[in-house]
Design a protein around this nucleic acid. Structure first.
Lengths: 138, 138, 138, 138
DNA sequence: GTGGTCTAGACCACC
DNA sequence: GTGGTCTAGACCACG
């Protein structure tokens, strides 16, 4: 299954779920017409309350990623992949920009920031050598 | 004044205050013996609840950045600059690592992440040309 | 075929089916004695659960629009046209009144409502020039 | 108070609340900077569960009508009036268009629809003579 | 079986 | 005091 939640990192569980579904769509792991796991199923699998999953799914409907197929379940909408890639891109960019701004606000020079980013990036690439290439950004 | 807070960005106000004081010390804008603004003064200036400022100052005392000069106020401690630079460095690194990890978790390839970071970094450097060089990192 | 359903617009599918059969009778597209499509036939054509069609047909029997012709199917009853026209009229009126009430509840003035209704009405008439005149209202 | 809910008309309570707050902003009854009633307060007044109010308020935040002032409450955002008038207008229009489309789909001629709308409109205006003029539509 | 709404109540962080 | 998150469980309409 494509969803994994961490209940202890402060990020709301419903948010983690919604985001991971979006990323799965962005990657093509879910394609238009696919049904996403039922609320009850996923809530059992993740051992969280069904309402929490329902809340994540509600957000996916608000964002027009998914639509309700009456009495059947929730299906990925046409064109969702594009939306999801855009969301993902935007989201990652925003997080990155925030981190960089914080570094500058902390009083570091651009050289210091550049050096620090490079170091952390290299560490992470070394730690995750097996990254599969995924959907390109819009 | 060296403190500016944003009440609507989700970051706790007391946290913003404490951090900015630390950064001011790291930069040498505050040096050992300097008094930091009184709780009432700063709370008035920032239009913030005095309890919030008090909480920030409590954290600064816990972290041994400032100490109470009885009857006078709170003064920056000897050796605080070193501590603050270490805090700053550690904090910025952690934030950066988190942002990068999130980017990978979102399914981006290392090339995509590298490109994106570079873009955002260049944007920010252009937007803030007047960065003063500040204390080097431990 | 005179029935078309939209599974994603929130209106119950069985309701859409029942109503459209009634409207067909009101218009004279179905006349007393005509057999309506079998449950299995219609369910296959609409790609809908047979239970859903069955439920629609049950309502039509309750409303005395159709009756079971044993071993043959369901047939439009004598006098059904009059009933259907009445249902149609009542239903349309109720929907219209609700929409208008909502507009007032939203805080619009009667002038604003009048203007808005006129605009939408003109748009629709332009978009559907080929309306056939149908049964007059009771 | 500017909110009144009807728990028996099928429309979700949280939806009624969110919409009525929007309409209050559209009308200028709430202006930017105003705090909307606290979750607990409104839930007590309407005798509904606090979570239900919270859900309505969450939607208002998603729609950028309102923003959280940390520890203080939810405040109407700058520019919300414009957004709210647009939402209101769009919403009323959509409801009206649906009702009119339904009338045509039911097989009525444009003359019949026009007549029917006129009748219902006159009835309602007579029943609500004291409509105050409110914010114009964008 | 599916999702949707609502209630009741706990716990948290923040001001 | 404020909102935010999560749990637990009930009830409903739909297929």
């Amino acid at each position: 299954m494509f969803v994994r939640v961490n209940a202890t990192n402060g990020v709301p569980v419903y948010d983690q779920i919604a985001r991971q579904v979006k990323f799965a769509v962005a990657d093509g792991a879910l394609t238009p017409g696919d049904l996403i796991p039922s609320v009850r199923e996923l809530s059992k699998e993740l051992a969280v309350n069904p309402n929490t999953v329902a809340r994540a799914y509600r957000e996916l409907q608000n964002d027009e990623i998914v639509e309700s197929a009456r009495g059947v379940g929730l299906a990925v909408r046409q064109g969702a992949a594009k939306t999801c890639r855009a969301h993902r891109s935007e989201w990652v960019r925003r997080r990155m920009r925030l981190a960089l701004e914080e570094a500058f606000d902390a009083g570091l020079s651009s050289e210091q920031v550049e050096k620090l980013v490079g170091e952390e990036l290299r560490k992470l690439i070394k730690a995750r050598p097996s990254e599969l290439n995924s959907g390109d950004e819009s």
